[in-house]
Design a protein around this nucleic acid. Sequence first.
DNA 1: GTGAAAGCGCTAACAG
DNA 2: CTGTTAGCGCTTTCAC
Lengths: 348, 348
Amino acid sequence: MTIKDPPRTPRPDSARTGMREVAERAGVAISSVSRVLSGHRDVSSVMRSRVLDAVAALGYEPDILAQSMRTGETMTIAFIVSDISNPLISEIALGAETTLRAAGYAMIVVNSMNDPDLELEHISLMRRRRTDGMLLSLADETYPDLRGALAKLAVPVVLVDRHLKDLDLGGMVLSEHRSGMREALERLHALGHRSIALINGSVSVRPSRERANAVRRFAKHHADTHCTVRSGSFTGTFGYDATRELLGRAARPTAIISGSNQILVGVLRALRELELKVPEDVSLITCDDSALAEFMSPALDTIMRDPNELGSQAASTLLALLRYEPIEPLNLPTHYQQRASSAPPPPR
Amino acid sequence: MTIKDPPRTPRPDSARTGMREVAERAGVAISSVSRVLSGHRDVSSVMRSRVLDAVAALGYEPDILAQSMRTGETMTIAFIVSDISNPLISEIALGAETTLRAAGYAMIVVNSMNDPDLELEHISLMRRRRTDGMLLSLADETYPDLRGALAKLAVPVVLVDRHLKDLDLGGMVLSEHRSGMREALERLHALGHRSIALINGSVSVRPSRERANAVRRFAKHHADTHCTVRSGSFTGTFGYDATRELLGRAARPTAIISGSNQILVGVLRALRELELKVPEDVSLITCDDSALAEFMSPALDTIMRDPNELGSQAASTLLALLRYEPIEPLNLPTHYQQRASSAPPPPR
DNA sequence: GTGAAAGCGCTAACAG
DNA sequence: CTGTTAGCGCTTTCAC
């Protein structure tokens, strides 16, 4: 059923009551209304109550847009992400939005779909919208035009678990990926694994680089252990291909670490196809928890962190920057959570 | 390390180049600049190129805020959700944002944390921000003050899988929960189940009501089958409690349907504690897919839908409303996906 | 303490 | 076709 003849009339209260009406009704100047509502102190109590009465009577609500126009502050923050449907990101977004909202800010979410060009467009568009600041979970830290675009930005920016070398744009909230990864590697080593593979996301972003570095550092200290790092993209397809390739070789790794929950899906698909049992045939550890990870059979060993806290801290850092307050770079912990998907390697 | 002495100087290009500078440089009137940039047709090509040159030379970017101030359109949509970290919601949000952005709109996300009072505050705040429209995934359709707040709204609203009786506020995009649920019930019945329980979310929102209705309708047509509906909240705690209670009884159900992915977590926890095997001891079906559901052991039977499409269609509907175009109410399909978590009931 | 006036950066009549 | 003018709704000097 199609609704015919949609209304052509202007929207109902397109004539919202403004400050002018309030001033008239209270019999005062429009600037006095502003003063009262802005909580200015030099206003007589008589004035205050007259204005407040009029406000209540008319149901007046200040227009945030007009305020922004005058003050230059939009009280709006942009959060540019690769893909909000990624559970890690959406949890970060929740933490960020909650903290921002408590401070009176609204959060615009934009998805770059991992396209650095689109990301640049978004940054520019958000600047034109005069957002007061930005939270960036960049798709590609190495993109050539990025630095220029960020340098041009007049508002404070906080990078969320991202790092641009030699570029100080104020805020940065990181996860300390190495320690969690090291714990996981040591656990595998203690179980007897001597061939371990990390199926890693894109090294164009910090988390993957840090994880790869942790593996390399581990390898350097454990000459008896062969470590492989396959870096690619945060996709199931990559996880699948890399797993098939790694396990199809004669000298197959006895343990796999998946570098993200998207990659994990591909790894699991490949393992299922290859009919390999976890942890009997191959041990499996993944990065970043999912709601169902602990209910898998076997329950998945996971390198954990607190994404809500990450988002919240990123927001707090941005708020501090907006207030010209001193900030300190944060490095939030990660840790290895043993469950049931790691075991000694199969006898060969 | 704390950074001392934060900059007290005003932000770098706080003196952005405006239309005025462009007009001066091009030697034309400011309104002519506006015309060229707005793609007005009655402009000479000489004028066009003069202006465009100046724009390019100065790197001028129109101020969206000021445009909004004049036109009354903010090109901003608010999406009010219970909790963006819910994977179902974040997928809907992705679909909505993608469609809105393609039409030039930005999306503000606000989390109500399932608090109807907070939700009302958000609605009011978004009105003050003059968002051009709202996408609402209400926390509680039955909240008394809600109707008033919505009626007062001057902008178009689209409810996302929500329904308010007798209130026509334009848009509504729904999921057709009943058919998927019916398929699932029939499958269970065919397997021989005669005692089935739905652990349902809050009946203050449409999806849970529809699912409960589907169960009741099924029960009416199958006198041989005992159906139980436990409605509560979309939380793991509720899922856990309800499962323990239902399975602790003498006449325990032989099949459980979980009404959301949050509830599912609680159900799984309870089943694990009770040491009940799926599907040997009890069959399990859940609503709305998760990335890992198919990799569980057993793979989880799921009543599926396309949340991205739901978000995208909701956005399209809102866009149509904004253009005063005719819209048609949508009812997107759900379907039962058999995997491996349903089987004949255990012999008694 | 309060009012009058000047814009924030842009668009939309209205003349010419 | 183009320039002039008048605001959108608010905040903020600046006088009184």
